[in-house]
Nucleic acid binder design. Structure first.
Lengths: 185, 185
DNA sequence: CGCCTTATCTTTACGATGTAAAATTTCTCT
DNA sequence: AGAGAAATTTTACATCGTAAAGATAAGGCG
């Protein structure tokens, strides 16, 4: 989780404060709420205060997406997810727990996929999935990997977009988890 | 495919012309290019000419998304896709052939999912997938359906976003098709 | 045929957005 | 202390979506 640090510098740790504001607004009101002026307003600074740190809005959102990929890699790491099914469940659970952030991470017109920090973070997350496909024996590893990642990513995306209402139990996290375990049996 | 009709009315069949402009701009420059002023400019009318027909930008884009779902339902229809694998391949092929349109169809902040025309069209498309899960015998039909749709949707989404470069052969449509058949073996 | 209602389209106007440029403030370092 | 660099604000501009009001042309009806 992000937290605004003390005030070691000029006006505080503005980069972290901006990311913190952006994330809270993101989870509250969705990706549509991620306007530069709204974020800076929420952080209590002027509209152009983010430029020296992130360049432009895309840079700021790319940094936020990188945080998302770092956290996703964390919950999929081998120490937390031992079995293949654990990795799949961690992926979907992360998406359901952080719908706005997950949406941002895969929205290519709001972020810059070439951003070095973003590339590094997303690479770390995808390595967990790649290792998973490597572990399972099969004919074509690439096809296996695409199928596995596709299933995980598709279920996560559809769940976030509310496409599975009626198909997925909406009761409690426990029943959702039980249902997901059946999907990824 | 959309095509601007003759000029039976005032200035022509503007609704169709606007949808035609929007679609060509969409496939040319992506979802980010779908600005109301740009679309109307492309169609040669004033910026507010779309309002009487579509209300606002969301209405126009929802109508375009509805066209997308109609075409998706078409390629997944039983007369074109007999085996379950055919339905899956049609879904992914449609996404790869119409990346911008497919992205729009699932971008919830640009369209209105409650739009009646959109609901009808998307319902028709999803019915093809539901019937597919109904055909296959299995323990929990809902879990089967979610897993199947998720895999199909995830592979399509990841392919569109360029996430599968390196995993998927980029040579020719034939090799891509062969690869996909292996994914959905 | 002539008028009148209605739908279609344009003009105008307003608030909001992203960001470039210049000015201002604040920190760091010698 | 004073210079230089970094951070932040002020100002300005092009663009966006759309509401309101005016202009234009079509169809219905006498």
């Amino acid at each position: 989780m992000i937290e605004p640090a003390k005030t070691p510098y000029h006006h505080g740790d503005l980069p972290t404060a901006l990311l913190f504001s952006a994330r809270s607004m993101l989870e509250q009101d969705g990706v549509a709420a991620l306007k530069l002026r709204a974020i800076t307003r929420h952080a209590g600074v002027s509209a152009t205060a983010a430029a020296p740190h992130f360049g432009n809005l895309t840079g700021l959102l790319s940094a936020l997406a990188a945080i998302g990929f770092t956290e996703l890699a964390e919950v999929m790491a081998p120490e937390h997810a031992v079995q293949p099914r654990d990795v799949a469940l961690a992926y979907v659970r992360f998406a359901i727990a952080n719908p706005g952030l997950f949406t941002l991470m895969f929205r290519s017109d709001a972020i810059d996929r070439q951003d070095p920090g973003l590339r590094a973070a997303s690479g770390r997350a995808f390595a967990c999935l790649a290792g998973l496909a490597q572990a399972t024996p099969g004919a074509d590893r690439a096809a296996m990997m695409v199928g596995l990642w596709g299933k995980v990513h598709g279920v996560a995306t559809l769940a976030i977009d509310g496409m599975l209402s009626g198909l997925i139990p909406a009761d409690s996290p426990q029943t959702i988890d039980a249902f997901l375990e059946q999907v990824f049996r």
